[in-house]
Design a protein around this nucleic acid. Structure first.
Lengths: 141, 141
DNA sequence: GATAGGGCTTCCTATCATGGGAAGGTCAAG
DNA sequence: CTTGACCTTCCCATGATAGGAAGCCCTATC
């Protein structure tokens, strides 16, 4: 299986497969005589694992840990659960933060006529400067 | 007011002030004879505006638009409201996505004993490959 | 067997917002 | 005049992903 087929089979782009190999997330794939990467079904499984974990929002660092736990068949499930729970906590915190932002903005928007007149509480609020104790912005997608 | 004082007064780091100037988000600050940047209270207001907008999760692109609307005192509030509402919609969509992730993970975690035994539904699920119709991952903070 | 096309390889670049740091100029207090 | 805190510019790094260029390889068709 060459990299294109592996990409199709796993849902991970060829670019990303090379990247994962480069950063050591997956082991370096075997090579054919002509230097093409050659993937086994085991490799595909790893890629699918990664793909699924990414879709659940795990960071590459968390995935690194999960992968090594996955490969270690005698690991205690406690460790895996710890990573997952930590991630859930993190997700919920970010959700709460974003909800606070959305609610604050909705409120401002409700107060804005949204017509031809220039008066706008949204801009007024933004101009008021950093509000006390407000959630700090997080980088966006 | 030099850049350090401007940073303290606005809550935006000196690094970021230079960056905002570089990308044209704010106009280039005046310079003293010794080439130091010199900020007026008006500049500080702009920076505070940006800071507050960032804390509400607006992207730099949105902020660019909001800033120009803010400076245009005859703009219709409709335009501002449109940007804000669009942002709220976007936020709520991302919230829903993240909640789906968190819920899915919580469910898996609940099924995991979290003890010394290696059996773990979390890893089993991840190994099952990309699930059908699952929300796709978004980059993280 | 030659040739065309598509796939593979590596390497470089960019994104977006932010921070770190080096090298060198400037200012204010002692 | 020295010292230390500040300013300047310039370069590099992050994380995950994508785009592209140059060149090699494989397969199918003529």
């Amino acid at each position: 299986m060459n990299i294109g087929q592996a990409a199709a089979a796993s849902g991970v782009s060829a670019k990303m497969i090379r990247y994962y190999e480069q950063i050591g997330l997956i082991r370096a794939a075997d090579r054919t005589d002509s230097n093409y990467r050659s993937f086994s079904t085991r490799d595909i499984n790893d890629l699918r694992f990664i793909k699924r974990a990414r879709s659940l929002g795990f960071s590459m660092e968390e995935i690194t840990n999960l992968l090594s736990l996955w490969r270690d068949h005698s690991r205690p499930s406690r460790e895996v659960k710890a990573i997952a729970d930590c991630h859930v906590t993190d997700l919920r915190a970010r959700i709460a933060e974003m909800r606070a932002m959305a609610d604050a903005l909705s409120l401002l928007s409700d107060g804005c006529a949204g017509d031809d007149r220039p008066d706008c509480p949204i801009l007024t609020d933004l101009a008021a400067g950093p509000s006390r104790g407000q959630a700090t912005a997080r980088p966006r997608p």
